[in-house]
Design a protein around this nucleic acid. Structure first.
Lengths: 249, 249
DNA sequence: CCACGATAATTACTCAGACAATTAGGTTAA
DNA sequence: TTAACCTAATTGTCTGAGTAATTATCGTGG
C-alpha cells in the first residue's frame, strides 16, 4: 500500500520570479510536474488532499486544482472523490507533450529516455525526409535553405545556431504536410537540443554537422526521396553516436 | 480581425447523462474540444469571456475555467488577461493526445488527417516490430499470443475482437521497451479503431486480417527483425488500402 | 509625422468559504 | 461467501469579491 505522500513544503508565490505570462497555477503545475517526472512522486502514490496540499504550498485550492487539471490533461495524475489524486502509471503519461518533455529534462534526464527519443528520431526523421522530398514546395525549401544558412553562419556553439538547427528539422517535418508528424516536432527538437547540449558540455565538438545537413537539403531539393532518407539516416546515426560518446565518460 | 465567437448556447449539466467518473468540467472540456476540432471555433477565434460563456453554459466560472485549463494543457487554447482566451493555431494542438484524437473523430473526421495517422503507422509500426523482434521477452510474447488467440476467436466484428487487435499492436510497442514509442500507442490504437470501424460501416469485410497478424507474430517469435518489419509493413499497407476503399464511395 | 511613456479599461487570475456529489471501504444481512 | 447498505472522506461545484496582468488609448515630446 503506497502511503500518502507529503510534499517538500516549499513555497511558490514569488510572483515576479516567474517570467512574464506565467501564472500561479502554471508555477504549481510546473513544480508538481517536475517532481513527478523526477520520480519524487512515484506512480501509484497518492498526493495529500487538496486542502492540505494547497495550504502547504500557501496557495488557494482554486489555483492548486487548476494546476492538477493541467497535469491530469497530460495523463500524469487522476483524481477521484474519496480516493484522492494519484500519480498514474508511466504508460499513461503524455511523454511527447512539450511541457512534459521540459519537466523530464528539468532534473537529471534519464539516459534510457534520451536513447528512446533518439530511436524515435531514427525512425521518424528519415521517413519524414523522404516524404518531404516528394511533397516539398518552394516556400518550404526556402525555409530550409534559410535555416541552413543561419546554422552555417552562427555554428552550433551559439543559441542562434541551435535555433537554426531546430528550424531546419522542423521545416522538414512541416514539408511533409502530415499533421501527425508535425506534432512530433517538439519531441524531435528536444532530442536535437540534447545532442548539441551534451556535445557542448563535453567540449568535444568533433564533427562539423553542416555537411550532413546539407546532404539532406540537397536531396530534398532534388526531390530524391531515397537519397533524402539515407542522408537523414546517416545524420541521426552520427548524432546518436556523438551523444552516446558524450554520455559515457 | 476575428470577432468574438458566441457559443451555440446549449446546456450541459444533465449530470446523470454523462457516464460514471465524468465530471462537469470534463463534459465542458469535451464539448469545447469537439467544437474546436470540428472547426466550429477556428484558430485565432476569441471565446467570449469567462463570465458570459459560463453563464451561457449555465455552469460556474470555476467549472468552466477548469475545462479551459485542460484544453490549454493540450495546446488547443491560450488565455491571457485582457486579451481573452483564443484558439491556438493547429500546429500547436497536441493531436496525438488520446482525448484530442477522440474529439477529432467525434465529428466527421477529416480524411486527410486519417491518412496522416496511417502514414505515421506505416512509419512507426514496422520499425517497432523490428525492435520488438530483437528485444521481446517471453512475457511480451505471451501477451501477443493471447491477444492473437482472442482476436481469432472473436473476430473483428465484436468489441472483444477489436480490443484484442489493439492489445496485439500495443504489446508490440511495449515489447520495444521504448517509452517514446509506447506513448504513440494511443494514437496508433485510434487509427486501428477507425480502420475496423470504417470497414464495419461498409459491411465489406473483405480480407481476413488474422494471417497478416500471425506473420508478424511469428517473425517476432523467431527474433527476425527484417521479417517482422516487412510483415508489419504489409499489414499496415493492406489496412490503409481497406480503409481508403471504404472511404471512397 | 512618428516614437515613446503614462494612463485607463478590460480581462483573466486568485482568493475564501460553503455546500453538494461521488465513491472507497467497512458493516450488516442474506 | 456474497450482496446490499451505510458512512465518512475527498473531490467537485458554486458564489462573490478583489487582485494583477495586459492591451489599447491618449497625450506628450522629439
Amino acid at each position: 500500500m503506497s502511503k500518502t505522500k507529503s510534499p517538500a513544503v516549499p513555497i511558490e508565490r514569488e510572483r515576479q520570479a516567474r517570467g512574464t505570462g506565467r501564472r500561479l497555477y502554471g508555477a504549481i503545475a510546473n513544480k508538481l510536474g517536475a517532481a513527478i517526472l523526477s520520480g519524487e512522486y512515484q506512480p501509484g502514490d497518492v498526493l495529500s488532499g487538496e486542502v492540505v496540499f494547497s495550504e502547504q504550498l500557501d496557495v488557494s485550492r482554486t489555483a492548486y486544482r487548476e494546476a492538477i487539471q493541467a497535469l491530469a490533461a497530460k495523463g500524469l495524475v487522476e483524481s477521484r472523490p474519496k480516493a484522492g489524486t494519484r500519480v498514474l502509471p508511466r504508460s499513461r503519461w503524455n511523454l511527447l507533450d512539450p511541457e512534459v518533455l521540459g519537466w523530464a529534462f528539468a532534473g537529471q534526464p534519464d539516459i534510457g529516455f534520451i536513447r528512446s527519443l533518439f530511436e524515435l528520431r531514427a525512425i521518424v526523421e528519415p521517413a519524414a525526409a523522404a516524404l518531404a522530398a516528394e511533397r516539398r514546395d518552394n516556400a518550404a525549401l526556402d525555409t530550409m535553405r534559410d535555416a541552413l544558412a543561419r546554422m552555417t553562419r552562427h555554428t552550433l556553439a551559439t543559441e542562434a545556431g541551435r535555433t537554426a538547427d531546430r528550424d531546419f528539422h522542423s521545416a522538414i517535418l512541416h514539408a511533409t504536410g502530415n499533421d501527425a508528424l508535425i506534432v512530433l516536432n517538439a519531441s524531435i527538437c528536444a532530442a536535437v537540443n540534447w545532442t548539441t547540449q551534451f556535445k557542448q558540455r563535453q567540449r568535444t565538438l568533433p564533427r562539423n554537422p553542416i555537411p550532413d545537413h546539407r546532404r539532406v537539403f540537397v536531396a530534398i531539393a532534388d526531390r530524391d526521396p531515397a537519397a533524402a532518407s539515407e542522408a537523414m539516416r546517416v545524420l541521426v546515426e552520427l548524432a546518436l553516436e556523438d551523444t552516446r560518446q558524450a554520455m559515457q565518460p
